[in-house]
């Protein structure tokens, strides 16, 4: 499962992400436990109740909670949700395409750390997230640099001989986010770069 190997990776195990062509790269999930340069670009723009989709160990959910911004993290990995709660923030084991509390009332939905790739179909994900937002609410997302090719990969996690199931994961370039956002029903889309990261904002 994604969950078990992701949990091992959060604990520091050398879990890899493997593509269908056989290439592999370290997942290094522990990097999502500490602040990352550029986080402030996202955090300062979360003005009201914020849903952190694919919140992992809860780095951003926790930072928002400490600032007094109401925040809920959702993740499909129970251990990641446990880490978020232990750090003093609210989180639930939820799939973004399943039942999510506060649907239609979130001021901000975060798709940080490449989570716009969840499900391998960013158009469907953005349409879903739009249902979760209140009218006039914002999506804040990490996107890939403009020169990157947008794509959908089939990947799986691997730890030695232990293999997870294949799942879809998308990469969305900053150059494509506007047309994707408009297709999903957003009317206002922009993107910018800071601290080596590219961000997009959709309303």
């Amino acid at each position: 499962m994604i969950g078990e190997l992701y949990t091992e990776s959060l604990a520091g195990a050398a879990v890899e992400i493997e593509h269908v062509d056989g290439t592999r790269a370290p997942l290094e999930a522990t990097r999502w436990r500490e602040p990352i340069a550029g986080d402030e670009e996202l955090l300062t723009r979360c003005a009201g109740p914020t849903l952190d989709v694919g919140s992992g160990p809860g780095r951003l959910t926790v930072a928002l909670t400490r600032r007094g911004v109401p925040a809920l993290g959702i993740d499909i990995t129970p251990h990641a949700v446990h880490l978020t709660r232990r750090a003093g923030a609210q989180a639930l084991v939820r799939d973004v395409f399943g039942h999510v509390p506060g649907s239609g009332r979130w001021a901000t939905v975060l798709l940080a750390d490449g989570n716009i790739g969840i499900g391998g179909d960013p158009l469907t994900l953005l349409k879903r997230v739009r249902e979760l937002l209140r009218p006039g609410g914002w999506v804040l997302a990490d996107v890939a640099p403009p020169g990157t090719a947008s794509k959908v990969d089939r990947v799986r996690l691997r730890h030695g001989d232990e293999l997870g199931e294949w799942f879809g994961w998308a990469t969305v370039s900053a150059a494509d986010i506007a047309r994707l956002g408009v297709s999903a029903g957003f009317t206002c889309v922009d993107h910018w770069t800071r601290s080596g990261r590219w961000f997009a904002r959709l309303r």
Binding site: G120, K151, V152, R154, V172, L180
Partner: peptide, 30 residues
Amino acid sequence: ALDGLPGSWLPPGFVVISQRHGGLDERIAG
């Protein structure tokens, strides 16, 4: 095997993979 992103034209029941880089022969073989 897609170069780019899926859109509303994609019916259910397909697994999407990305195309490899290179000429058409390399992309088909890949």
